[in-house]
Design a protein around this nucleic acid. Structure first.
Length: 327
DNA sequence: AAGCCGTGGAC
DNA sequence: TGTCCAAGGCT
């Protein structure tokens, strides 16, 4: 067993992954064309905790609006949030805007190519910095995303979820001469072969080295149990002359910066629909109000503006119903 | 340092 | 149907 563990740390493992990637990796992902630091940055932020398939259309839309960093320079936070609409984890969008401003002020308008500078930017942590350095600048820095974590956990049969050990291993097996393809390869391996359920070990290029495959036992990767709280929200609908009144949210602790309808202070527990967030179940209801009751600070939006306005999913759904009724 | 942040794919 | 969980970072 020890010889096996030593065996898979050899640099040949990294090269096997690179080779596999070039033959069988996902070759239809838009951020893998015309690779530039800017495009890698945008895609890596979008891909945080978000499946590649979900990101594809958002990335295309973003890039078609802002093809290069030069085009992105003048974007407002509201512009970025609009392009993020429906993608979730909206702090990423606001951090992207903040990071852009810092790049303009402190880094001469160029995305840094050093680890130390990259991780000073909001939204870029150790793993995202590693991805940018590896894929955009071809510098050998480790990544530890969910895919890499799962592959390494199984390859080396790490049962205690030791993060430092996983980072060390990620660093050790790097194919330094082909870091860009290697990193995309190990992530593809985790996403398409070494999957959470029904792993395709028979197709894995590393199965002869994999301790878990040898043992016939795949260790489970950190399953966090979350206690979801129920939150009751009643949204007030104010409408006049084909306009809807909305407020910019900063009171909920989630959906920060998105436009929502004013929230009623009622304590009645009504549930028209349940919208599930990662940590809460929202019980949502709506109430039609008369405009003389309006006290919130906000803005009237014409129905023609609503589809592009950054609003959270359940609000977007409700608003689109309203727009349909006017047509 | 554990809890928080959104939405949807996959099964 | 419900459940798991995703190219994580921030506080």
């Amino acid at each position: 067993m020890n010889s096996m563990k030593t065996n898979c740390k050899e640099s040949s493992t990294g090269k096997q992954i690179t080779k596999w990637y070039r033959a069988k990796g996902r070759n239809n992902l838009p951020w893998r064309e015309n690779i530039t630091p800017y495009r890698v940055w945008i895609s890596e932020i979008m891909l945080q905790q978000t499946q590649a398939k979900t990101v594809v259309n958002y990335f295309k839309k973003f890039i078609s609006r802002y093809p290069t960093f030069e085009d992105f320079k003048s974007a407002s936070e509201e512009n970025v949030l609009s392009l993020w609409k429906g993608l979730g984890f909206y702090r990423r969008a606001r951090n992207l805007y903040r990071a852009k401003e810092i790049i303009l002020k402190k880094f001469s308008g160029k995305l840094p190519n050093s680890f130390e500078n990259l991780i000073t930017l909001p939204g870029i942590g150790k793993s995202t910095a590693g991805a940018i350095l590896s894929i955009a600048y071809k510098l050998p820095y480790p990544i530890l995303d969910a895919n890499v974590k799962r592959v390494l956990t199984r390859l080396f049969f790490i049962t205690d979820g030791n993060e430092k050990e996983l980072w060390d291993l990620s660093n050790q097996i790097l194919d330094k001469t082909n870091v860009d393809d290697f990193q995309q390869g190990i992530m593809d391996l985790g996403a398409t072969v070494c999957t959470p359920k029904n792993a395709l070990c028979g197709e894995c290029p590393l199965n002869k080295k994999c301790i878990s495959f040898y043992k016939g036992e795949l260790p489970t990767v950190n399953v966090k149990k979350i206690n979801k709280k129920n939150v009751y929200l009643e949204f007030e609908i104010y409408e006049k002359n084909q306009k809807i009144f909305l407020v910019k949210n900063n009171q909920l602790g989630f959906w920060d910066g998105l436009w929502i309808m004013p929230i009623a202070e009622t304590k009645q527990l009504k549930t028209e629909l349940i919208h599930k967030l990662s940590h809460r179940n929202l019980h949502i209801s709506f109430a039609n109000k008369s405009n003389d009751e309006l006290k919130s600070e906000g803005k009237w939006f014409d129905i023609s503006q609503l589809s592009k306005l950054p609003t959270p999913k359940p609000i977007s759904d409700k608003l689109s119903l309203y727009v349909q009724n006017f047509l």
